[in-house]
Nucleic acid binder design. Structure first.
Lengths: 225, 225
DNA sequence: GCATTTATTTGCGTATACATTAAAGAATGC
DNA sequence: GCATTCTTTAATGTATACGCAAATAAATGC
């Protein structure tokens, strides 16, 4: 299985996966520059697949290719954060509405319910990493249930762009107790088939998250993550 | 000037520009496959810049690279249309709201006003091509005024994906008289600084456009444009 | 004839070589 | 000592070559 991963994936695909991972983990720090040839050597391949991977990651907003300056890992400012959260707010709210309209069965909502349970457990255990992971799953699954592939892709893209920042803010922000209540309310609205409520409640949830996060960033002068 | 365009642009950039143009114009028809080497010969360059351009256009949703089958120009089904218009509805409405919040001066709204005037003229002259062009300008400028670069990029991407379809529907749809009224109302709300009104009116406008377009597509069984 | 296997072809993925050009450093004139 | 031009360097953009795997055609067995 794992062998197949390494075997059957093209170098370009591996480069995309690895570079993405290195960016999200901070191994390639925001704001730093890297020559194509360096990255090629690091990943043990030639420049060609590196360039192709960089091109893709560029259109996903994770980096920027600047002639002669190398590949620049894009930092995320608090203004960027605002832009991104504005988009997440709109598109996820739409997804919540659509999910409620779809009339999913209990079993079809199992993953969503599960993610909420995991968040509750994580809060109880005060395990913020676990909470963040479950939170991500909730939002991802919500969007999937929304049934719009393009929304899914855009939300995934935007989520990638803020993941680094989240790692930082996670330990500054208040315990996300309120956030969990929100999730439950949104879930309730979806499972009861109330589109408008699902939409509005999720919208409020996101707006609050945005205000909280951007507030933290500005307060702590964290201007490029 | 034009010399500089040809000179200073890299082949990859030219390939992106030319392929995009060929796709939007229908010269590369939806659903058709094209070998990398064919495209390379057509554009008079090697496969390398073609591949890079194709990679970019792939992430913009205009085509798909399938090993051994060539580059496939993606068709747009009426389901796709729905997805895309859902996104346009949400993001443009947000832009309208933000534009109204920004409190732009009359001169800053000149382009937007101009596009409306052009649409009125076009309707009077029953010049649908001109109307479509001005309509596009309106939406593009609206989004620009919204002040969110990422929204701008996403909307541009989605607009590209439906442009082909629009060319087809343009001569089937009813004269866009109602559409022009909508634009004026949205403009009014923005210039008077009423964010909620701007948002809601634009939202309605988009929802109607979507219903109309998707209705036409399904009625005429136009399922892949 | 049909299925299955074996050649053959063909297009892609990738490495590599080279041309190009922007940036950095050296040298010249003032 | 400063500005300017020339040289050099180095990283990119692009062409090209080649191995490999998938699709097609041919051939073989039944």
């Amino acid at each position: 299985m794992k062998d197949q991963d390494t075997k059957s994936l093209s170098n370009t695909q591996r480069a995309v996966r690895d570079l993405r991972r290195m960016i999200l983990s901070g191994e390639l720090a925001a704001g730093t520059d890297h020559l194509e040839s360096e990255l090629a050597e690091t990943l043990g391949m030639s420049r060609t697949p590196i360039r192709e991977a960089a091109l893709m990651l560029e259109s996903k907003g994770l980096l920027e290719m600047r002639p002669r300056k190398g590949v620049r890992i894009l930092p995320v400012s608090s203004d960027d954060m605002r832009e991104i959260y504005d988009i997440l707010t709109e598109l996820e709210s739409l997804a919540a509405q659509r999910a409620a309209e779809a009339g999913y069965s209990e079993s079809q909502l199992a993953v969503l319910a599960g993610s909420i349970a995991k968040m509750d457990q994580a809060i109880e255990a005060e395990d913020l990493e676990a909470w963040a992971e479950a939170d991500e799953l909730f939002h991802q699954e919500l969007v999937r249930l929304g049934g719009n592939k393009r929304v899914e892709a855009i939300v995934a893209m935007m989520s990638d762009q803020v993941r680094r920042a989240r790692a930082t803010t996670l330990f500054i922000r208040p315990l996300p107790v309120k956030s969990n209540e929100d999730h439950r309310i949104v879930f309730q609205a979806i499972s009861e088939g109330r589109p408008d409520a699902a939409r509005e409640r999720h919208r409020e949830h996101r707006l609050q998250a945005q205000a909280m996060l951007c507030g933290i960033l500005e307060k702590h002068r964290l201007n490029s993550l």
